[in-house]
Amino acid sequence: MNFFQSLAAALTPAGLVWTALIFTVIVFLHELAHYALARAQGVPVKSFSIGMGPVFFRRVWRGTEWRLSLLPIGGYVEIEGMAPVEGEDGQLRAPSTGFAALRAPGKIAVLLAGPLMNLLLGIGLMTLLFTAQGMPAPDRARIEAVVAGSRAQALGLRAGDVITGVDGRDLPETAQLNGQEVAGYELVRAALNEAGPHTFTVLRGGGTRDFRFEWQPTLNGKKQLLGIQYGPDVTRVGVAQALATSVTNTAQAAPQVLKSFAQLFGRFLTLDLSRDENVSGPIGTAEIVSRAAALSPWALVQVAVMLNLSLAFFNLLPIPGLDGGRILLVLLGALRGKALTLAQENAINFAGFAFVMGLMLFVFLRDLGRFF
């Protein structure tokens, strides 16, 4: 299979459409939050575009030119006082009105609004998932399907069975597996990697029963399969508990997401193009969305949660050009008692922009490399 065939197999038309739609909604709401906080403080907003590139529709409403642009990949908002203005002599100078005239707390509120919107949207969608589908119970493994003619079917295992224990011990919520912390239900997989007698304690119809069997992970050099598809069991919860768990999960995810970004920066600085499962570029993301679109609408919601949280955390990084970098410059100006000069701010923002663009190109090339 050549490069183009591999790429076409990974990216379905429905997946590409959903990717564009999800990104557009996420970025639109991000920019809408910046717009709302600016307008709430009396700062004019010159334009608001849904999409990027050439504008094919525009209309002025409430002092803002609302645009529809050709490329459905996000959008942008142009807030007065955030960009240099041209003086009467034709030279660019620092703005003194609009955003530039706000005090530090007001500026930070405008800049923080976008990432905060994505954070809240991610938490809200996660809450919706938990309320509608139940909350994952990592200390139980639900058998979702049993392969016909498999060893599992011969043992009497059925779809809907819930494995609560392995080899006489209850499954924990978390466990150590190959030096990494994993959900307890992954111990089912660990047991099937070990030869010998095994016991699965299964909850069925309100009661429990044990299934005992001898197991060989490989036979005549061929990997053996028990014949079950499984995942974490779920617990039905109300909105309040779903919301509390969503907030907790987001807080717990932050260090891991930041660690993934740090590893990505390290790979970028050393030009290490080896595959990294923790961070995906546009092609990898479209591939994930394509797989999710083939599963269910709820799988797409899960992807939207991941993208919102990733965008929120990434934008809060103190890198010039990102919202976090702009917040850092505002705080630096407040500590100095005066804003940076236009030349200083332009130089810092240019360096940050170049870094982010280089990083995006690096991730894109690494994505492409998987298909060669």
Rank of each mutant, 00 (worst) to 15 (best):
N118K: 01
G369P: 12
A101I: 14
V234Y: 15
R103V: 11
R370H: 13
R62E: 10
Q91G: 10
G63Y: 13
G90D: 11
R142L: 15
G165I: 12
N308F: 10
L226P: 06
L171I: 05
F4A: 08
L171A: 01
W215Y: 03
G369L: 14
R93M: 15
G114F: 03
A299H: 11
M82G: 01
M360Y: 14
P54F: 08
G227Y: 04
P115F: 05
F265R: 07
R58K: 11
N278Q: 15
A148Q: 14
G63K: 08
V43W: 01
F261R: 00
L328W: 00
R93E: 15
A347E: 09
G179Y: 09
R336E: 02
R336C: 07
L328M: 15
G75W: 11
E181S: 11
Q5P: 10
E181I: 07
K222M: 14
W66Y: 08
T174V: 14
I163Q: 06
A40C: 09
T19A: 11
D276L: 10
R370C: 08
R370I: 14
L219G: 11
E181P: 02
T201L: 12
A262P: 14
M306A: 15
Q5T: 13
G124E: 08
R39W: 12
R189F: 15
A312R: 03
I108Q: 00
A251W: 15
A253M: 13
V60E: 15
Q176F: 07
L316G: 09
R291C: 12
G369N: 09
L68N: 02
V239L: 11
S296V: 03
A137P: 02
T201M: 09
R39S: 01
W61I: 07
A154T: 13
G98K: 03
F371L: 13
Q229N: 09
S96R: 05
T24P: 11
L331S: 00
T199Y: 00
R158W: 07
A253F: 06
T208A: 12
R336H: 01
V234I: 10
F313C: 03
A293W: 08
I319H: 00
T199D: 07
